[in-house]
Design a binder for these strands. Structure first.
Length: 761
DNA sequence: TGAGCAACTTAGCATCTGTCTA
DNA sequence: TAGACAGATGCTAAGTTGCTCA
């Protein structure tokens, strides 16, 4: 079956960045070529089996290519294989000492990751080396292959095991005596799920892939709750109202201070921000307060006081700063860890959000509103039934509720004071097994789409001309999501910024410009502008004109569609397929494709430049933008000045070289006023080379800075690029993984470090 | 069937921290 | 050794998705 129309996918050019988008277009063409061959020739062997083969460890590669990077975390030390923990029949908790009490000194030091690896690894090797588990030999249809891929890859199975009845209790905080008792009860508890067994029994493909909503996520869960910001300390600095100092109560002063420190931000230029602040602050001031409007308030004294405090902090000695940091760590240490089924895991956000003024993005109707202080009685704690209930850190107060819900992964939650129908959750850090497993499942699903994409594209191409308007809209929307990496686009209420995604595009967001060109112009997530002019296939162009006919600005372009209809349709095409999978698929596919086409022989710097280039293309595809930093132009000017100076030096050196060759002394004084030494021609040539290299480096820096000033590379690296592509490429090309990933990302992607060097997305 | 909710992921900006340079 | 700077990390807003219930 043909995957694309014979003339290939539409070529896309973003008006604002034509060069890069031409590349984008080329990439897509090449990508589709490859996909087509995949369908016609059947998918190659499923790569997960490659994970199971013996492969050169990353640490070995690092030893080969780096000798001077010892201070950084070694990937070997960071290996924390989920494969290991998942595959064993022995529950993790059974392999770790029970009765582990969080917050005790035994847990005050982070368990080294290599130790975690050693806890799990022994039984893995034997299983992984089992040739019988390889799926290389399987040559079956595309869909079957994809299914096999899932089944063979044990790691894709949700952590969750059997369904467990949710037990909910409402407890009051217990005494320490009670905590000890509960800990003892916990001693005997052991996780009972066996993932591997579950998979083999289950014949339901989608169930295997699902992240397991409503399924049991843990058996034992121990943690210490969350920490709250210290109470407000009044400073007593008065604001001026009509030029006269006004005394405020501590509550009024606290909110005034939150406003004062916003002086240099763009929020202060927005009337909604100031209006919302005034409404909330006025309530605190009371009706008969001397302050009757915001316009006559001068917050400068508080602003100045804050600046002085900031400077004082800056001026502290290194020792003082270090002491403060250590004190903070000491206070927070016990909140930083949780024990899940006997495994110590890092907690992500264990601090309650401090009070502040709401900083909604774009034109948000609630910006400037007071986000009140979160108190323990706002917070629901989720913890193991037998675990000690965390002590409430604020004396005299208590948690809102204690639950023991083993079907969720949050440790604590509270209602967002700004949007009361939204919850804020405290969960494990990105480096945790839960997040790692979920990440891997995400990439496996995206990888699975590779096997289906040909059929999906053929289906939506057919749908472009469907007489059923709903089917036609689904087809065009899917095309946009696939080709332009648009987000699904849920409905939003009036209390949010007015942004759109694919399903919520308005008539005015897409303009037909003739010659099959469509101009997209809208605000997407975070009110980031999406502006792109693309050439589409003729039936798509015609369909858009049809959808716009007889509609007014403000009307929905896809009036027969919403995200649930779209996703329901996608699920008919591939198990568990949703709109967002396309973004992951296209991002990872592009990286894989570009790295493999563009990496040439060269030094590490050249190879990392190739990676950065590919990363940038993905960021452009996903429309990951950032605002130009405040001092960008200053930095560029400074670099240009330095280049000018160096060029003057270079000029002088060339004269000196000329003179030296004629055995004449250098010019008496150099341009910077310093006396010069008498150097031989070789030494001057060396200096010339060094100076030229400096100039070249600075010119490259300027180019890179300009090139990336509005592109955010991090978002795609963290959320869209399958780390196995990166790790395998690093292994193949002897690039130290530390050149690509920070320490934190190495921890987050620990599950990917064992990948075979031949891995392809 | 659709609204509302809950859970979790994705996102950009602010702040912190470590390194480089004068 | 201080200040500048870049990169790393933290924070929290803003999405997507799936489920429940009327």
């Amino acid at each position: 079956m043909a995957v694309e129309a014979s003339d290939g996918p539409a070529s896309f050019k973003r008006s604002s960045a034509s060069k890069s988008n031409q590349l984008h277009s080329e990439m897509r063409n090449s990508a589709s070529d490859r996909k087509e061959s995949l369908l016609e020739k059947k998918i190659p062997k499923c790569d997960d089996s490659e994970d199971e083969e013996d492969n050169m460890s990353l640490s070995a590669i690092r030893m080969k290519v780096t000798h001077d990077n010892d201070k950084k975390a070694t990937p070997n030390a960071l290996k924390k294989s989920y494969d290991d923990s998942d595959d064993d029949d022995i529950p993790l908790s059974a392999r770790l000492p029970h009765n582990t009490n969080l917050g005790e000194s035994t847990l005050s030091v982070k368990r080294p990751l290599d130790e975690i690896g050693s806890l799990h690894s022994s039984s893995k090797k034997s299983k992984l080396s089992n040739p019988g588990s390889s799926i290389n030999a399987k040559q079956i249809s595309v869909k079957s292959d994809a299914k096999v891929e899932e089944e063979e890859d044990d790691d894709d199975i949700p952590i969750s095991g059997k369904m467990n009845k949710v037990v909910k209790l409402v407890d009051k905080p217990s005494s320490s005596k009670k905590l000890k008792n509960v800990t003892k009860v916990n001693k005997g508890a052991a996780p009972s799920f066996k993932k591997k067994e579950k998979v083999k029994k289950s014949g339901n493909e989608s169930e295997q892939l699902s992240s397991g909503d409503g399924q049991k996520k843990w058996t034992t869960l121990v943690h210490n709750g969350i920490i709250f910001p210290p109470p407000y300390k009044p400073h007593g600095v008065k604001i001026l109202y009509k030029g006269k100092p006004v005394t405020l109560t501590p509550e009024q002063e606290e909110v005034a201070t939150l406003f004062a420190v916003m002086r240099d931000t763009e929020y202060m230029q927005k009337e909604i921000f100031k209006d919302n602040f005034w409404n909330d602050w006025r309530e605190l001031l009371g009706e008969n307060h001397v302050i009757q409007n915001l316009k006559d308030c001068d917050f400068t004294p508080i602003y100045d006081w804050c600046q002085i405090e900031k400077d004082k902090k800056k001026q502290m000695s290194l020792e003082e700063k270090k002491a403060l940091r250590e004190e903070k760590i000491k206070q927070e240490e016990k909140y930083m860890w949780a024990i899940v089924d006997g495994v110590k895991e890092k907690v992500g956000n264990f601090r309650a959000e401090p009070p502040g003024l709401f900083r909604g993005r774009g034109v948000h109707p609630k910006m400037g509103k007071l986000k009140r202080r979160i108190r323990p009685n706002d917070v629901v704690i989720n913890i193991g039934k037998d675990a000690p209930i965390p002590e409430c850190p604020i004396p005299g107060e208590s948690w809102a509720e204690i639950t023991h819900d083993d079907t969720v992964t949050w440790l604590a939650k509270w209602r967002d004071p700004i949007k009361p129908n939204k919850l804020k959750n405290v969960s494990l850090a990105a480096s945790s097994s839960w997040k790692g497993q979920s990440d891997k499942e995400k990439y496996q699903k995206a990888r699975m789409l590779k096997s289906y994409i040909g059929n999906i594209r053929a289906a939506y191409t057919k749908g472009f001309t469907s007489k059923d308007i709903t089917k036609q809209q689904i087809a065009v929307a899917t095309y946009f999501i696939d080709k332009l990496a648009l987000r699904a686009g849920n409905e939003k209420d009036d209390e949010e910024a007015d942004t759109v995604g694919c399903c919520t595009l308005k008539v005015e967001n897409v303009t037909a410009e003739g010659h099959n060109k469509l101009k997209f112009d809208f605000l997407g997530k975070d009110s980031i502008k999406y502006e792109n002019t693309v050439e589409v296939e003729l039936p798509v162009y015609k369909a858009i004109l049809k959808f716009q006919k007889d509609k007014q600005p403000g009307d929905d372009l896809f009036d027969k569609l919403d995200t649930s209809i779209l996703n329901a349709h996608l699920k008919e095409l591939m198990p568990n397929l949703t709109a967002k999978v396309f973004r992951t698929f296209n991002a990872s596919f592009t990286l894989d494709d570009m790295l493999n086409k563009e990496t040439k022989d060269g030094d590490v710097a050249e190879k990392t430049a190739v990676y950065q280039h590919a990363n940038k293309q993905v960021a452009i595809i996903c429309n990951h933008q950032r605002s130009v930093s405040k001092n960008h132009s200053a930095q560029i000017s400074k670099l240009n000045e330095k280049i000018d100076e160096l060029q003057a030096v270079l000029k002088e050196l060339k004269i000196d070289l000329d003179r030296a060759r004629k055995e004449k002394p250098p010019l008496k004084r150099s341009s910077d006023g310093k006396n010069k030494r008498n150097l031989n021609p070789e030494a001057i040539e060396k200096k010339i080379a060094q100076t030229s290299a400096k100039i070249e480096k600075m010119q490259r820096d300027i180019h890179t800075k300009e090139d990336l000033k509005t592109v955010a590379l991090g978002t795609s690296k963290i959320n869209y690029l399958d780390p196995r592509i990166t790790v395998a490429w690093c292994k193949r090309h002897e690039v130290p993984i530390e050149k690509i990933y920070t320490k934190t990302l190495l921890e987050k992607f620990a599950w990917a470090m064992d990948v075979d060097p031949d891995f392809r997305f």
